[in-house]
Design a protein around this nucleic acid. Structure first.
Lengths: 195, 195
DNA sequence: TAATTATTAGTATCAGGTACTAAATATAAG
DNA sequence: CTTATATTTAGTACCTGATACTAATAATTA
């Protein structure tokens, strides 16, 4: 029999915590093998550390992200479409959460704001598919997690298959972002021949 | 005994499919109650419809979203940091997937590209926390799902707490994006000085 | 060496199933 | 109406990944 190179209890529990954090899908059995201890020891460890069982962890991951992904790019539009006049203007609402922010400062990462603006700009274009060509954007004020972002998009000019859209985002009627998008409609597939 | 207002098999199976789709966390037992049939009937239905059991469904939801959130803002940096010289330059790699693209065209949504660029720009700044102030960006060519995006960031100028960073993104040495970011380092907690 | 702590073994039980057999009940066809 | 077929229900054995508990063994410390 090979020597079991076991580590101390505290070290194991620390490693356990990290491992489960980085991979919530790991079973007690796999953990037992990894740390060269019995499955019972792992269960005692989890009990002491207050870490729930695999199925509970998986469920939590599923439930947490079920919501988030919907407002975070899994869909065609980031945020919730409130109003839309195709080819003219549109309004969308995005409720920011701490998962969108830097943990230290609670300030929402810029690309979430950008994503809301860009996807609204694209939604407002009256064409099958559009692709962002150029954009000039400006963040005017930091956004804190919990803020409700109201984005307003307006089509200001259409030239050929280029669409110029201005997007403004407000929090409580204070402007936090503005951006000018030039979107190009693709005529890859059928039905987007000319605008 | 009260009359059981049962619906036809096809209708039930249709309802079943919809219900599970809208709530993947529902058990066979709950479904049986909802449709006034036995648990075995529900299981036969799932078998016929090819719908996996609760735990499998929850696991799939968890796994799907675990990936997405990681590559879409759950982390501090979007993509994988390959190289970093703090305050000077940095390189990151992002492997695009179909979940980042429009289902119709398979073209990656712009904000994913932007997110990679912005987060790399912020990572490269030698400061505790930075906030995107202004950015001027341009998408040069559409990116298809599966493409590997290599982003290169370079700090070109530092004035006060304003950092000017250029980011270029290539796919197979073909440039698909460029952007100029002005990032403002925050002083401790408060104070976003004028740019 | 004794006391204490850590680990392992083993059993009963649970949820939410699969897989299978068999029986009861509906519904349709002759 | 009666038979044939489809549908639903009942019941059993088994599975995974656990909890909860008791008891014994091994390792460490006083």
């Amino acid at each position: 029999m090979a020597l079991q190179k076991r580590i101390s209890k505290v070290d194991r529990q620390e490693g356990l915590r990290d491992l489960i954090k980085s991979d919530p899908f790991v079973t007690d059995e796999e953990l037992a093998e990894k740390f060269h201890v019995s499955i019972q020891t792992i269960r005692l460890d989890r009990l002491e550390l207050g870490i729930p069982e695999l199925r509970e962890r998986v469920k939590q991951v599923a439930e947490n992200n079920y919501q988030k992904v919907r407002s975070l790019g899994g869909n065609e539009i980031v945020g919730e479409l409130i109003d839309l006049k195709l080819g003219e203007r549109g309004i969308s609402l995005l409720e920011t959460t701490s998962s969108m922010a830097f943990s230290k400062t609670n300030i929402v990462r810029g690309h979430h704001i950008f994503s809301q603006a860009e996807s609204l700009a694209m939604a407002v274009i009256d064409a099958e598919v559009a692709l962002t060509g150029v954009s000039n954007i400006k963040y005017l004020s930091p956004v804190t997690a919990g803020d409700k972002l109201v984005a307003k998009a307006e089509v200001v000019r259409v030239r050929g298959n280029s669409h110029f859209v201005h997007v403004k985002i407000n929090v409580n009627s204070m402007q936090v972002f503005r951006g000018k998008f030039i979107l190009v409609a693709l005529k890859d597939k059928k039905g987007v021949e000319e605008i």
